[in-house]
Design a protein around this nucleic acid. Structure first.
Lengths: 146, 146
DNA sequence: GGCTCAGATGAGACTCAGTCTCGACAAGTC
DNA sequence: GACTTGTCGAGACTGAGTCTCATCTGAGCC
């Protein structure tokens, strides 16, 4: 009955113990459609009476970020949000209305990064691109032409 | 003796009062070479015995962000930092070693954003690109070839 | 120069995300 | 079963940022 939760498999593959709190956190994250904040997760855990403490929640999140299956986003409001994702390098597009996220690949960004290296004289080691807008569903609902 | 501080002119242009605490904050920011955190600024204000309260500092920062002369960065460590900048749309390259920042223009990014719109089906309204690496000076100091 | 008042200020309490510590517990190994 | 080690919950703590409120002040007006 357990669907092959990618978070659980990542934990397993990395040799971490599959404890009840971790499985519960993985399940909570898997049920989220878009991004979520730490307190969303804490609320959900409380609603389901999972008995997971905040410290455990943050520990699990840290672990999942380290494994690359969850990523931390900084929303325009300054809030920190988390989003489940594939471990490969990619970027997130976040719907400002419903919170849905989509992962996108390079899309020509590495060319732009190369150009920025030339412009700035820096050697770029890492970058983070976050995009905000309206998803297909919200666009359709508002009737705004894309 | 007052150099034409761009932050001060922006405040003036926007019709905000040029009060002593605001001028002091503008001056503190202008003396910073790269990015700084709110607590850096608070420390600097305390060192210079400017008598600026934390609330005032945050209010001034908010104002300057609203005017577009200061921008908030999210460092890879999760810290919030601030960086003085021009009001036009641009991106920041941050030196991971010394904290120096450089502003870069579009550099072909808008093409990548268009491609991401096509890939994801989202309508992108805003994006934020932050780049981290080593600046010219730190590269020279470490002898790493760019 | 004096008056007025909206806007700005300082002080300090408050909130909230995230961290840390510590004793208890549980899983894995022998 | 004993031992080791990783993980747990509870709760105190930290620090960035916000909020409130009484007070002050800059700037326009007379």
């Amino acid at each position: 009955m357990d669907a092959p939760n990618p978070i659980v498999s990542a934990l397993d593959r990395a040799g971490y113990r599959l404890t009840a709190p971790r499985l519960a956190v993985a399940d909570l994250i898997a049920t989220h459609d878009g991004h979520f904040t730490a307190s969303d997760l804490a609320d959900a855990a409380r609603d389901r009476q999972l008995g997971i403490s905040r410290a455990t929640l943050f520990r699990a999140l840290d672990l999942l970020i380290e494994l690359g299956v969850v990523e931390r986003l900084d929303l325009p409001s300054g809030e920190h949000a988390y989003v489940p994702c594939a471990p490969a390098h990619h970027h997130h597009v976040v719907c400002s209305r419903c919170g849905r996220t989509a992962e996108v690949g390079d899309a020509g960004l590495s060319g732009a990064v190369g150009e920025i290296e030339r412009q700035s004289g820096f050697r770029i080691d890492a970058h983070r691109l976050e995009l905000f807008g309206l998803c297909r569903h919200c666009l359709a609902r508002t009737g705004v032409p894309s």
